[in-house]
Design a binder for these strands. Structure first.
Length: 584
RNA sequence: GCCCAGGUGGCUCAGUGGUAGAGCAUCCCCUUGGUAAGGGGAAGGUCGAGGGUUCAAUUCCCUCCCUGGGCUCCA
């Protein structure tokens, strides 16, 4: 089905939704109802609260009204007529005013007695073509997306050309729910939240911590190869640091502030770059010492509004795998490309071989949001774009997505449900070096301003782990599995042998557990499957018979329900180690 | 922060104006088993917190806390 047709389908459905709502709740004011990815919505001002329990009723009315709907007939109306139609609807009047100001034609479309301000694009035969739609949820949304405006009630829905596509889509939503990291994180015992500790402050269990550390160790391994050095900084600072960096001005409402007993204002660090500049600036730097590459995985703290918090995806304490490179202009490209290389290797190993590249640029219309001169921004952005072009990768440009201090190369991963997540980032920054007067002594003995690169591979470890959990539905690759093997005796006659096998695995640095519970094998297999442990080693009479003094035999079973049969323990360990080494 | 919906044992959920139930998990006993749940028993909850209405509140009302779906924001 063509994209245009789907859009028309959904656009028509949104009109029908508005018609049904006005029919059921005549005092409602309808506002706008665009088509979005995977569906449509319509925003209303209701005179009474609407909840998702009302959706079935509205959907039913939509189907009733549809019986009377023919083609939506469009016509141009005069300014006066338009204002008359919507005399009681301030939202539509605002839209009409805008059309007038922009000297655009005002058109309305009508079907089944329902008239809506619209520029067209509908189905020709709604009654026949609009069959497979569903209302999905109710939400609040500010008029025109501005929090200063009134909050309206948004109804989300979707429509497809045939029943199968609709059902597939609804199933997709269910699938996503089943692998929600908040659910799996609990089921797999990776992290938890405590009401005493507070919202947005995850607590990591031993298993979850293991995953965090494995990921972080791998990032460090890759960075180490590129000449990075670890640094460490305190988690609070005098406010003065952020006044100089510009963060105080821009983000002071989002900082956790601390007043000392002597009345000085401190803040929990919301990012690390200003601290790192002070390490760079702790001594005079020769051009020979550059680049200085500092890496630090550390938590930052941001006073996010409670409504913005969500599982691990959005938290108040974020672990960043942060790095800052301080270098000369002529080293910038090479350093950025090194980071790019790290990013590619890391995402390949974590199951995202294809990354999309996004250039996040400033918005020329909103220069008040950025430090520095616009002409410079353009120059810096062209520079980034030229490197990306040189590498010959596809990319998109996102206006207004830059950091306030510089443009970014952002990397976007696509997960197994085809959802996209912004992950790694490389940012070239001349503003903060200027604010902190970062320089080096160059070949001529002069002070030369330097450039600073901000680079995160995972970005936020919390968020990255949440993406990984959902990407793998909790079935992590062997190298990341908190428990790689569970050893299970068929009955307690074989406990001793099971423990001996586990010890061998443990001595080979395999993460192994034994399951000696008083339960039948089937129950233990079920547990392995639910916990997504990659391998189960089964020890029973047959394995004991095969085993010798020098060599244990085990029966191996995978979490994918495959029986790999009896094999030598040493052979199994070899296979395991290969998988861990190759990170598969 | 804003709109809507929720919060009942560790988990998933039922239920009621007269202070609570199920399944799974836990613990104990029996069973000693071969590829997704063996059987029995016990223990476990001031029904998110505080206030109000009432003879009586987990249930009705208010405030707050927390969670979810969105919106706004995101260095």
């Amino acid at each position: 089905m063509s994209e245009q047709k789907v859009n028309n389908l959904r656009h028509t459905a949104s009109h029908l939704l508005a018609a049904a709502v006005l029919d059921l709740y005549p005092k409602t004011k309808h506002t706008i109802g665009p088509v979005i990815e995977n569906g449509f919505y319509y925003d209303f001002e209701f005179d009474q609260p609407i909840s998702d329990k009302d959706l079935a009723k509205i959907e039913k009315r939509m189907r009733q009204l549809l019986l009377k709907w023919g083609e939506l007939k469009g016509r141009e109306v005069s300014e006066k007529e338009a204002q008359e139609i919507y005399q009681d609807n301030s939202y539509k009047l605002e839209l009409i005013d805008e059309l007038i100001k922009q000297k655009e034609k005002i058109t309305v479309y009508e079907s089944g007695g329902f008239v809506d301000l619209c520029r067209g694009g509908h189905l020709e035969k709604p009654k026949q073509e609009l069959k497979h739609f569903k209302l999905l949820s109710v939400a609040g949304a500010y008029w025109r997306g501005d929090e200063k405006n009134k909050m309206l009630t948004r109804i989300y829905g979707t429509a497809f050309e045939n029943e199968k596509e609709l059902m597939d889509y609804l199933e997709q939503i269910q699938l996503a729910k089943a692998r929600d990291h908040k659910k799996l994180g609990k089921d797999l015992g990776l992290f938890t939240f405590s009401q005493l500790v507070g919202p947005g402050l995850p607590l990591w269990t031993p298993k979850g911590t293991l995953i965090r550390n494995l990921l972080d160790d791998y990032v460090w391994q890759l960075r180490c190869e590129k000449g990075y050095q670890k640094v460490a900084i305190p988690h609070i600072t005098k406010k003065d640091l952020y006044v100089v960096s510009g963060h105080w001005d821009k983000f002071k409402n989002d900082l956790f502030k601390i007043t000392t007993r002597e009345g000085h204002v401190f803040a929990m660090k919301p990012m690390n770059c200003p601290h790192h500049t002070q390490i760079y600036n702790s001594q005079q730097r020769s051009y020979r010492d550059l680049p200085q590459r500092y890496a630090e995985t550390t938590m930052v703290y941001r006073d996010e509004q409670t409504g913005e918090l969500n599982g691990l995806s959005r938290v108040r304490c974020i672990t960043q795998d942060d790095a800052h490179v301080f270098c000369r202009e002529n080293q910038l490209k090479q350093e950025c490309l090194k980071i790019w290389e790290i990013i590619e290797r890391f995402y390949k190993a974590t199951g995202f071989p294809q990354l999309k590249v996004r250039l996040s640029f400033h918005d020329p219309k909103k220069m008040q949001n950025y430090l520095g001169e616009e002409a410079n921004w353009q120059k810096w952005e062209q520079e980034l774009e030229s490197w990306v072009k040189e590498r010959g990768v596809d990319y998109q440009v996102a206006i207004g997505e830059a950091a306030f201090y510089g443009p970014k190369i952002d990397f976007i991963a696509k997960d197994s449900l085809q959802r996209e997540w912004q992950v790694a980032t490389i940012q070239a920054d001349r503003n903060m070096p200027k604010s902190f007067e970062l320089a080096c002594i160059n070949e001529n003995g002069g002070h030369e301003p330097i450039v600073m690169i901000h680079a995160a591979i995972m970005g936020s470890i919390e968020r990255f782990v949440s993406i990984l959990i959902e990407h793998y539905a909790g079935a992590f690759p062997v190298w990341l599995s908190p428990v790689q093997v569970v050893v299970v005796p068929v009955s307690n006659k074989f406990i001793e042998q099971a423990q001996a096998v586990a010890e061998v695995l443990n001595n080979q640095a395999i993460r192994v557990e034994t399951n000696l519970e008083n339960k039948p094998l089937g129950a233990k297999i079920r547990e392995q499957s639910l916990q997504k442990t990659p391998y189960l080693c089964i020890i029973g009479d047959k394995e004991v018979q095969l085993s010798t003094e020098k060599e244990f035999f085990v029966s191996v079973r995978t979490r994918e329900n495959k029986d790999l049969g009896q094999q030598k323990l040493s052979e199994f360990i070899k296979v395991l180690k290969q998988q861990i080494e190759k990170k598969t």
